[in-house]
Amino acid sequence: MNILLTGGAGFIGRWVAKKILQEGHKLWILDDLSNGREENIVEFLSHPNLRGFIKGTILDEELLSGLFEKQHFELCYHLGASINVQDSIDDPRTTFNNDTVGTFYIMEQCREHNTKVVFMSTCMVYDHCTDETGIAESHPTKPASPYAGAKVAAENMVLSYYYAYGLPTVVIRPFNTYGPFQKTGGEGGVVAIFINNHLNGQNLHIYGEGTQTRDLLYVEDCARFVVAAGFSDAVNGEIVNAGLGRDIAINDLALLITGDPSRVKHVEHIHPQSEIQKLLCNSSKAKGLLKWQPEVTLEEGIARTLAWIQAGGLQ
């Protein structure tokens, strides 16, 4: 297949790229490197099936038009997005343009060329969970940040192309994903930041009380899920979750990583209004429709991530 992957130089994107290339498909990656890094995909640049790495933005309609016209993509994994909650609060326009308007431009090209779309959304669109069976796709949404709001808007547009035009589309909502190649600085995920601080002898800072929970999905499990959604007709027109099915309080996560309570410090939350107190995924739909389930435990995933950061990672 000819496949376009937007955001392919990002953390999750590079693992999706690796999986697609392993399966023998011809791949083009489009990324403006505002969040992704070319170092993430340097090992793929000489791969015979990576037919192009294009540094460009999904907001460039002329660029998109030329790409789709020339390459005849059969499948588009759309991962390119602004993903930082605080950035979306500080500058909602940029997030809306990238996540909603940019998605519209992608959808228009896919409609014209009859290209299936796998749209990467987020668990941050959900209201908090009180049920120990976890959050299923029918759970109420609550866009508590402009990031979540932009994603909800884009989700609805993606699904509208399925209903209005019969275009095969699927919305995927992976839960908090972590693993090798995630940034260890301020823009990174909590696991990578905690491990990096632990290895450097620094304190682990937790926003708020630390009782908020997260369902942490190892990145290779996430990439298997993302790729599978593109090759299944069973999920067309659907919203599908993926998570570990186990949540952990941030306080407990910090102790799991450092083992030293004296190094765990609590700081004032930067966006308490957008915090989701409990995130626990119910992935039964993905298991039923895609035969997907996570394979890497939290402890094993943390060990793999720690080993990668210890070995030098990407700073």
Rank of each mutant, 00 (worst) to 15 (best):
L75F: 05
E275A: 12
W15C: 04
Y163S: 15
L279M: 15
F96R: 11
E112R: 15
C123Y: 12
G243Q: 10
H128C: 05
N2T: 10
K278W: 08
V152F: 04
L21Y: 02
I248S: 10
K18I: 01
V219S: 04
A136M: 04
R224S: 14
C110I: 03
V101S: 01
Q212L: 07
F119P: 05
T6F: 00
Q310D: 00
Y165P: 00
D131F: 01
L280E: 08
N156L: 12
H47E: 00
G259T: 14
P92H: 03
N196G: 00
T184K: 01
V296T: 15
E23I: 05
R214C: 00
G243I: 10
N236Y: 02
K287Y: 14
L45S: 09
I58H: 02
D233S: 12
P174H: 03
G245W: 08
K70Y: 01
A223I: 08
K19R: 14
D91Q: 14
F11M: 13
W15E: 13
Q212W: 06
R93L: 14
F175W: 09
S121Y: 09
G149D: 08
N176Y: 13
L253N: 11
P140Q: 04
P168I: 03
E300D: 15
T6H: 00
A148R: 12
N40K: 07
E299S: 13
R246K: 14
K287I: 06
N196A: 11
Q310L: 05
P261T: 03
V152G: 08
I206R: 08
G210P: 12
K19H: 06
R304F: 13
K278T: 12
I248K: 09
Y105V: 00
H25V: 02
I3S: 05
I41V: 15
F73H: 06
G185R: 11
E268H: 07
L63W: 02
F68P: 14
G134V: 11
L45Q: 14
L298Y: 12
I135G: 09
M107F: 01
M120K: 04
G210Q: 11
Q202H: 14
M120Q: 09
S82R: 13
L59N: 03
F68A: 13
G13W: 10
G52L: 05
K70S: 09
G188Y: 04
W15S: 10
R214I: 01
L289Y: 09
Q109E: 15
D60Y: 07
S262D: 15
F11R: 08
N236L: 01
G8T: 11
L5Q: 04
L279I: 15
Y207L: 06
A154T: 14
L289E: 11
C281T: 07
Q212G: 04
N2G: 00
Y77I: 07
G7K: 02
D90R: 13
H271G: 09
R93Q: 10
L4A: 03
S283H: 12
G210H: 12
G13K: 11
G80T: 06
D260L: 06
L279S: 15
E132G: 00
K183I: 01
I195K: 03
K18Y: 06
K265S: 02
T213D: 04
R93W: 12
E23H: 03
A286Y: 05
D90M: 11
R224M: 00
